[in-house]
Computed example of a mutant assay.
Amino acid sequence: MKDSIRIPIIERFLDVLHAQQASPRTLEAYRYDLELFCKFLGSYEDKPMDAARDEIRAFIAWESKRHHPNTVRRRLATIKSFYRYLMTEGLISQNPARSVIAPRHRQSLPRFLTEREVEQIFNNHFQCFRDRIILELLYCEGLRISELARLNMEDIDFERKTIRVNGKGNKQRIAFLGDRLATLLKAYVDKAASGPLVRSSRTGKRLSVRYLRMIVQHYAKTNPHVFRHSFATHMLDRGANLRAVQELLGHASLSTTQIYTHLTTRRIKESYRKAHPRAT
């Protein structure tokens, strides 16, 4: 929101989320959603405390006309979390958001690259070795772009061929290095023993998530998360165990990983329809 106004009760709520190790991006999303809700109510001060269930429903109905159901669901989740906080603090006696229902979830299959498309990207001429390392880590390890940005030299264990990854909510997991990527990384980190893994060649400072996105877009013409989707899809295509892929991705729930099985199932069906003489 361009003219963001700091609302004390919202700031207190965000402070609690920050103490629970919510990411800066999550905090900004919560702030935006709640400020938008307050604007809809017509007040930036006491009105959120006095909002009625029908007002919350009206806001969700209004948002549903303007945005994708997934966006509206996120905004309602923010509001529900906010009112649970108000209840916990004893600031309200009833939760007006409790029975408000979100619009039906429209689940879309994640976009991924084919193995051939991945090879074409890596056959590009890279302006510097660091840029190749960035794309290799995204695809070979299935990292989130934020996880890549946080990596340090000391997170890499060449002896065990592992990488320590700090995921969502500061949860750590271990990623495994293949021989080829290990060789590339050894050449890349040879002269730098510690500090950020992907850094500015000019200042030596850690590259921001935004800058990393720009690098990926420049070479691959897509967003970084597509490499993560491709990692999972190609692993399952080649017979990897679903729970193993869950662990490698750092998903808390197996159901989150299962969406990739829909991709592989769809491709199997397509192959069947194309190949079998009586499939059509």
Rank of each mutant, 00 (worst) to 15 (best):
R6M: 08
I10Q: 00
D15S: 04
H18T: 04
H18W: 02
Q20F: 01
Q21V: 02
E28A: 12
E28P: 00
A29N: 08
Y32E: 09
E35C: 05
P48V: 03
A51G: 04
A52Y: 14
R53L: 05
E55Y: 06
I56Y: 01
I60T: 02
R66A: 14
H67W: 04
N70G: 01
N70H: 09
L76Y: 04
A77E: 04
S81H: 04
M87A: 08
E89W: 03
I92S: 07
N95M: 12
N95F: 11
R98D: 11
P110Y: 06
P110L: 03
L113N: 01
E117Y: 08
V118T: 10
V118H: 07
I121D: 11
N123H: 14
C128Q: 14
L143D: 02
L143R: 02
R144I: 12
L148N: 06
L151H: 04
I156R: 00
T162F: 03
V165R: 00
N166E: 14
N166R: 12
K168D: 02
K171Y: 14
K171S: 12
Q172I: 11
Q172V: 10
A175S: 11
G178S: 13
L181M: 07
L185E: 02
V189Q: 00
K191H: 09
P196K: 04
L197Q: 03
L197P: 01
V198R: 00
R206C: 04
Y211I: 09
Y211L: 06
Y211K: 07
M214V: 14
I215Y: 14
V216E: 06
K221T: 12
K221N: 14
T222I: 13
N223P: 00
H225E: 08
H225F: 09
V226T: 12
V226S: 04
R228C: 03
H229P: 02
H229S: 02
M235I: 08
D237L: 06
G239I: 07
A240G: 06
L242Y: 03
V245E: 01
Q246A: 11
E247L: 11
L249A: 03
H251T: 06
A252R: 09
Q258P: 08
Y260K: 02
H262T: 13
L263S: 01
L263I: 11
T265D: 15
I268W: 06
I268D: 08
A275F: 15
H276R: 03
A279Q: 10
A279R: 08
